[in-house]
Nucleic acid binder design. Structure first.
Lengths: 167, 167
DNA sequence: TGTTATTAGTTGCAGTAGCAACGAACGGAA
DNA sequence: TTCCGTTCGTTGCTACTGCAACTAATAACA
């Protein structure tokens, strides 16, 4: 009886309280920040998340694809491959064969690609700063250290590399 | 010239350093923890992430679907709908019409569903604890508070609700 | 040298996500 | 009651993701 009030009443022994479960909370937070960022690079520049990462990486260095783009297994190599293809098709990235090792190819931003980079990057940074603005500088340092610790540990617990999905 | 050494050399003015960019790091961490968790509920129990969330929520309360399952826009309602359908088909969740409002339906775990819940939950918790084991209790408290702060802020910056994707 | 293992990158396939449109049911106001 | 706006939930469509299999090139070793 009293069917209505049973809805939110906890069951006898809730083994996991989702709202307190760290992986869940991390995923919610990561998803929200992604949404905030996606507004910028997706809606306004037509970039997917992998494409955005490629652009930023190439804006930072001038490196080669796949393994360099996902050195820690953050992106799957097929993901990188497709992102690069798309960017090349749009004329934002250029491939150049590596004569020393013809399995791989050097990637670099074209002038158009760099223009986009220089337009997106500051806005993305601004979002990051707006996010962090609720933390004191000290808290930001602490957070950074905690994330590093957890990431190291998570890397040990995860299959071997792999990433993606949510939880 | 010296083409090889240019690969990792930073460009003149790297506007964004991906490895230091908070949204990126959050996503990497969240992805890694998801992978660790997925090993359990996906490979061993055949549950998708949304299904896992539904199971846990129903193990915690005895609530109704969709809006209750995603009160903060963490999951899209279509995602919840499909997860529930799949779980119902497997006999892990049962629907019961809500006579007070026939738009919605009450959901509850079946005995089989609860059995799975009681098998998965402790293992998932263990993964969470193993993750947190690299932090002191004090650090865990701090982290929790920081995540809360950031989540609140991110919720303000994100479109309106929405979630998903990565970055 | 030849043989085998490893690595960079691509692509077919299948599963899954979100969006948007839809139907059904409710609530409020005239 | 009727009409309009809102909400719960489902479903078609499309796009994306990861996996696994594959090619091509290199490395390691006998």
């Amino acid at each position: 009886m009293a069917s209505g009030s049973a809805a939110r009443k906890p069951a006898s022994e809730p083994l996991v309280v989702l709202e307190e479960f760290l992986p869940y909370r991390l995923n919610v937070l990561a998803g929200l920040t992604s949404s905030a960022l996606a507004q910028i690079y997706a809606e306004r520049f037509g970039l997917s998340i992998p494409a955005w990462r490629v652009i930023v990486t190439l804006g930072q260095y001038e490196c080669r694809t796949a393994r360099d783009m996902a050195p820690d297994g953050v992106m799957h190599k097929s993901t990188v491959s497709r992102a690069v293809s798309a960017l090349e098709k749009r004329g934002l990235v250029k491939r150049r064969p590596n004569l020393d090792d013809r399995r791989e190819e050097w990637l670099a931003l074209t002038p158009e690609g760099r223009a986009i980079y220089e337009a997106v990057a500051p806005e993305a940074l601004a979002v990051g700063e707006r996010l962090l603005s609720v933390l004191t500088p000290q808290e930001q340092k602490t957070l950074s250290a905690l994330i590093d610790k957890l990431t190291r540990q998570a890397r040990m617990l995860a299959p071997q590399d792999a990433e993606g999905e949510e939880a």
